[in-house]
Design a protein around this nucleic acid. Structure first.
Lengths: 298, 298
DNA sequence: TCAAAAGTGTTGCATCTACACCCATGC
DNA sequence: GCATGGGTGTAGATGCAACACTTTTGA
C-alpha cells in the first residue's frame, strides 16, 4: 500500500508517457426530462380543473432529426460534471435552480444517434408548473413547449418456456402540444431459471427525435415507482396545496383514480395543516397543507 | 413532419460537412459490481454456516491507483454498447453469461480519475456463488478475489433549517479479502421547501481505487431497496434452495435478522415446493424450493 | 335549494408481528 | 436425550379498501 522509490519512478514514467488519446473517446450528451403537472381547460366554472402530466420539449432546428421534438439537452464539456451539465440545461430552459433533479438512466446503444456514437445520460426533473413561464420561441429560433403526456399499457402477454417465461408488454406514449406525437414501446421481460432480464424497444415513433420516446417512457416508469415510496410528489406542487391537489398529482401520474377518504388517511402523516384555505370555487373552501417530512416512517 | 426537397438538400449538406470531432469527446468506462452470497467459515459441524455478501475486485497493476483494488471494468469501444461492454467484462471475469445484470449509475465527476476525464457507467450483477470459480491470478498478472462486504450506518444527524432540514448520514464500508479495505461515505440530504436533494461524498478511502467505494455503496443501497419489491434475491441462489437459505440472503443484504415463521409466510407465494430435501446436517432435513414467479401480485 | 367539493366514520379484509409450540434428524 | 434447525398455529395490531354519510360554500 506504500509507494517505494521504484514505484515513484514508475509513476513518473507513466505520467510522462500517458497519452489521453490512447483510448477512443465518445461524445456524451445530457438530456433532461422536465415534468410538471398542468391544469386541463375546463368550461364548467363550478368544477375543479382536472390535472395532466406535462413534459417540456424543444423542436430541433438542425439535422439530424430536424423538426422533430427532443428533450432539452446538449453535449457535456470536458470540464463539466454530468450533474452540472443537467443543472445548466435546466436553468437555461426554466430559469430556475431549485428543482428536484435526479439521474435517470444512461442510454448507450451504438446507433441511437445517426451522426456518430453518442452516449446520453438522462436526468429527471420535477417542477411546480406555476413557477415556470416558457417563452414561445427561444433564442436559436426553435420552438419550445409543454406536451401533455399519457402513457398507457395496451398489451401484456406472457408465454411460458421450458424454464421460465417471456412476458411482452406494449405501452403507448401520446404527447399533445404544438403537435401530436406518438410512440410505442415494447418491454420484454425474460425469466430463465432464477434470472430475470429486461429489454425495451421502441417499436413505433412519430415526431420524437432519437430514442427520446424511450427516455420519456423510462422517466414515467421511474416517476410512478418513486411516487409510492418517496415524497417526490411534493416537488410538483407549490409550498401550500390542498389535499385534493395532492391527490390529483398521484392520480395523473399513476393513471388511475383513488378514493379520497383513503388517500387522506394514507398521506395524512406526510402533511401538516395550515391556517389558510383556498376559496376560489363555488363550494366549501379547502384547507391548505404543507409538506411535513417529520411524518415519514424513516 | 414530411421532408421536402429543400430539406433533403440541406440534409445532404449537413452530412457532407459533419465533423464528428467538432464536439469534445470523453473517455467512457464500464465498471461492474459482481455480488454473490458466500458461506462463512464454521467450526461447529452441527451448525449451519452463516452467510456473507461478497464482491469481486481486482488489484490494479497500472498507474494510476496501482496496487489498489478496483471493480472489474474497462473502456467502452466506439462500436460496443454500454450493456454489451458490461456483459463482456462479466463473461471475462466469471466465465458466465446468464447472470442478473442491470445498470446502476453513471459517475460523472470531473476529477474522479487522475489521468483525464473518465466517465464511468456502473453495472450491478448478481451471481450464485457456487457457479463461479475465481482463478487466483488472471492473465495480466493482477490478483483477483472476493471481498466480504459490510456496509453499516454509523451516524445520522438532522438539523432543521429555516425552510426544511439537512440530514447527514455516515456509512462505513468494510471489505475483507486478500487485504482489508475500508471507506466512509457521507450522504447529505437536504430539504428546502418541497424540494429534496441528495449528494454523496467519499470522506475516507483506504485501498480502493478511484471512486469505486462510492460505487459499491450505491450498489448495496440498490440491492437493499430492490430486495423488498423485486425477486432479485433468487438470482443469488441455485435453482433449488431451502427457505432458510433464502432467508439468509435477505438477512445478509439487509443486515438484520428476520423471524423465520413470518419470513416463510411473506415469501410463501414466491416459491414452490419440490419433492427434494437437503439432509447434509445433523438435524431435520430441509425441503428444497424453487422460484415461482406466478405468485407475484403483479 | 342545489351542485360540487371538503372532510369524517364504520366495517370488514388482508397483512404483519411476536411468540409459543411441535417435528425430524444424527450422534 | 439433546442440540439444532425445520416448520405450523394463534392472537393482537395495524393498515387498507369500499362506501355511506355530513359539512360548507356561492350562486
Amino acid at each position: 500500500m506504500k509507494k517505494d522509490s521504484n514505484d515513484i519512478k514508475l509513476e513518473n514514467d507513466f505520467w510522462r508517457d500517458y497519452d489521453p488519446g490512447q483510448f477512443e473517446k465518445l461524445s456524451v450528451a445530457v438530456d433532461v426530462l422536465i415534468f410538471a403537472i398542468g391544469e386541463k381547460q375546463q368550461d364548467n366554472a363550478r368544477k375543479l380543473p382536472e390535472k395532466e402530466l406535462r413534459i417540456l420539449l424543444k423542436k430541433r432546428t438542425e439535422f439530424p432529426d430536424k423538426n422533430k421534438w427532443a428533450l432539452p439537452g446538449g453535449f457535456v464539456a470536458p470540464a463539466e460534471s454530468l450533474e452540472q451539465a443537467a443543472y445548466d440545461k435546466l436553468k437555461q430552459k426554466t430559469g430556475l435552480t431549485d428543482l428536484y433533479l435526479e439521474q435517470l438512466y444512461t442510454f448507450g446503444e451504438v446507433n441511437r444517434d445517426s451522426r456518430t456514437r453518442v452516449l446520453s445520460c438522462s436526468y429527471l426533473a420535477l417542477v411546480d408548473a406555476a413557477r415556470v413561464d416558457i417563452p414561445g420561441k427561444p433564442s436559436d429560433g426553435g420552438e419550445i413547449g409543454w406536451f401533455t403526456t399519457v402513457c398507457a399499457l395496451i398489451a401484456d402477454n406472457r408465454s411460458f418456456t421450458e424454464d421460465g417465461y417471456v412476458r411482452e408488454k406494449q405501452y403507448v406514449l401520446i404527447l399533445e402540444g404544438p403537435e401530436q406525437l406518438k410512440a410505442q414501446i415494447q418491454v420484454k421481460e425474460t425469466l430463465n431459471g432464477n434470472i430475470i432480464s429486461r429489454s425495451e424497444e421502441l417499436v413505433y415513433n412519430e415526431g420524437l427525435a432519437f430514442d427520446h420516446a424511450a427516455m420519456i417512457w423510462t422517466g414515467i416508469e421511474r416517476l410512478r415507482n418513486k411516487l409510492e415510496y418517496t415524497s417526490i410528489a411534493f416537488s410538483l406542487l407549490p409550498r401550500l396545496f390542498t389535499l385534493t391537489e395532492l391527490q390529483q398529482v398521484y392520480e395523473t401520474i399513476l393513471g388511475r383514480e383513488l378514493t379520497a377518504a383513503n388517500f387522506r388517511r394514507k398521506i395524512g402523516h406526510l402533511v401538516e395543516e395550515t391556517r389558510h384555505t383556498r376559496a376560489d370555487y363555488q363550494h366549501r373552501p379547502a384547507r391548505l397543507f404543507r409538506f411535513n417530512p417529520e411524518g415519514g416512517r424513516q
